[in-house]
Simulated assay, not measured.
Amino acid sequence: MTKRIQFTAHGGPEVLQYVDYQPAEPGPQEVRVRNRAIGLNFIDTYYRTGVYKPPGLPSGAGSEGAGEVEALGSAVTGLKVGDRVAYATGPLGAYSELYVLPADKLIKLPDSISFEQAAAVMLKGLTVQYLLRQTYAVQAGETILWHAAAGGVGLLACQWAKALGVQLIGTVSSAEKAALASANGAWATIDYSHEDVRARVRELTGGKKCPVVYDSVGKDTWEISLDCLKPRGLLVSFGNASGPVTGVDLSILAQKGSLYVTRPGLFTYASSQARLQAMADELFGLLASGQLKVEIGQRYALADAAAAQSALESRQTTGSTILLP
């Protein structure tokens, strides 16, 4: 029997169970992967707590990882047993030694990228790709605001923005995290534990504010984000770390300058194998050139997934966190 993490009820990290598990044989268009490293992401906690609903209970957890192809469905082409692969948009269940998923969710992993690097960067890197390159195509010389700049996604965003010639202002919760964001390319940082984010953004932009704000925090930063946008600016709300934004009065968008708001998700942007491959190609190209580097701040055994999620939710982590089967 193999091992996996599952939950049978919604709740805190304590609901995660490390159990024996027998994965199904791959269907015609599916592949079984032996995971070598697994990514940890905030979206995993949303499914555990019930903010997002899994297809059913008991449910597996996670959707990102990297490993080797162990078995192929009868109709799968373009892959063979032993191939090194990575994924970020699979069905729930990646927190497992063995994982069965559709073949079109897999990307072949270049030899230059390790399993650990891939598990740490796939979902976060693809997220940064669609946010900076598609949701709002940032331009060289622009000044943007990014909340939680010292997290796994944030550190990649700092680097990617710098590579594009964009001045990224990153919010952080401590001097240590400010230094980390700066070291990864943030143009400026704001420590919200003792600085006024609105005032500092006005100061840094000469009163012009930002054309776009990227906000993965949610409820606690909603009003702040709106106030940091220039007229007709775009708020990209892509996470709920402090809780979901609810009860929105749309008239506030007119009052604050005819603003736009979007709530995007990776699965919509990586909606086909071709789109997923194109996004991954750009990500891998930046990694190969050295313009992007993966910061793995924490490694946990798969059995300790509950502790890993607890650390993530309490903002005790920096960079990416991975689970090792």
Score class of each variant (00 low, 15 high):
E68S: 09
I113E: 04
V100S: 05
P110C: 03
G60I: 13
G39A: 10
G73Q: 05
A88T: 12
L92A: 04
S96L: 11
D104Y: 07
L92I: 11
A103E: 00
A119W: 09
V81Q: 07
R133M: 08
L40Y: 02
E25H: 08
L131F: 13
K124M: 09
T49C: 12
P26S: 07
G78A: 03
K108I: 00
L123H: 09
S59L: 02
A94H: 09
G93P: 10
L98F: 02
V19I: 14
D44W: 05
K108Q: 12
V31T: 06
A119G: 12
Q29A: 15
T127D: 01
S63H: 00
Q17D: 11
R34D: 02
P91E: 09
D111N: 14
K105H: 13
P102H: 01
A118E: 15
A118L: 09
Q134R: 13
A86W: 08
Y95C: 01
G27F: 05
T49N: 14
E30W: 06
V19F: 07
T89W: 00
S63G: 07
R36C: 03
F115E: 11
P23I: 04
E97S: 00
S114F: 12
I38Q: 01
L57V: 05
A88M: 06
A94T: 08
T45F: 12
E116Q: 12
A137K: 15
M122F: 08
S59N: 12
L106W: 00
E30Q: 15
